[in-house]
């Protein structure tokens, strides 16, 4: 019974997110600008640098999964802002008084953010095709890549909710959010292979869940090399479970 209640609340949260998107799509479009600039400006310039070993993949194609993920992760990492805003209004108090578990609230919100991220990626995807990025034409692979996008975005949204429950105010949260996004992106294989990094950065990249997500999405969408896919998915699942648990436990702190 409780399980079904929780499931129902999770779906309600996803529905909420989709309804908000439907009323105001501007955010989705404006957020698409930055990743498109990454591909068109940064990608084009850097593709002239022949020193980055991409296994023969054109550089723009190589960074497309990273840029797709970066744009969705950005949505997730700042999802906590919504929670901070809901804390300042009375919404969180009210959700905590509703007959639903806080696990369902946290997971529901995180999953909802994952859905938002997928919508975001769906906007950038056709733009990348127009830019000449060659995707693997296997629909199962592409679907699996979007599943990975969804899973990692949900995980980072949960991380963001966890940070929000500790920081509690917009200003503090913004500081942490900004500080998180840079190392996340650069200490991963989003823009260059890990073997190019200094050893310290390599070990950070090893613990960075984004590395596994990029590896999976790149394998599924661009290179077609799927040898690491099960390991990548396993890594992200472990990350999701851990962070969902941590975020759920600390969630109640946010209203205190």
């Amino acid at each position: 019974m409780t399980f079904f209640n929780s499931l129902r609340e999770m779906f309600a949260m996803i529905e909420l997110e989709l309804r908000r998107l439907r009323h105001d799509r501007t955010e989705i479009y404006t957020r698409a600008v930055q990743p498109i600039l990454w591909l068109t400006v940064y990608g084009t310039v850097m593709s002239h640098v022949r020193d980055i070993p991409t296994n023969g993949i054109p550089y723009i194609d190589y960074i497309t999964p990273g840029v797709l993920l970066q744009s969705t992760i950005f949505v997730s990492v700042f999802y906590g802002l919504t929670i901070v805003w809901e804390r300042e209004t009375g919404i969180l108090k009210r959700l905590l008084v509703a007959p639903a578990s806080r696990y369902a609230t946290v997971i529901g919100r995180a999953v909802a953010s994952g859905v938002r991220a997928v919508v975001q990626a769906l906007i950038i995807f056709p733009v990348a095709i127009l830019l000449g990025v060659k995707f693997i034409s296997n629909p199962t692979y592409i679907a699996a890549a979007f599943l990975m996008l969804f899973m990692i975005s949900g995980g980072f949204a949960a991380l963001s909710i966890f940070v929000a429950s500790l920081m509690k105010t917009r200003e503090r949260f913004m500081g942490i959010g900004q500080a998180m996004i840079m190392p996340l992106f650069f200490a991963s294989n989003a823009l260059y292979p890990i073997k190019l990094m200094p050893p310290i950065l390599q070990s950070i990249a090893f613990f960075n869940p984004l590395t596994y997500a990029v590896d999976a999405v790149r394998g599924l969408m661009i290179s077609g090399d799927v040898a690491n896919i099960p390991a990548d998915f396993l890594a992200v699942i472990v990350f999701d479970i851990l962070i969902f648990a941590v975020a759920s436990i600390s969630f109640r702190k946010i209203i205190e």
Binding site: T89, G90, I91, R94
Partner: peptide
């Protein structure tokens, strides 16, 4: 329960 602060989402109907 209706808290003192706004407790509805303002960007939906």
């Amino acid at each position: 329960y209706v808290p003192q602060e706004t407790s509805v989402w303002t960007d939906i109907s």
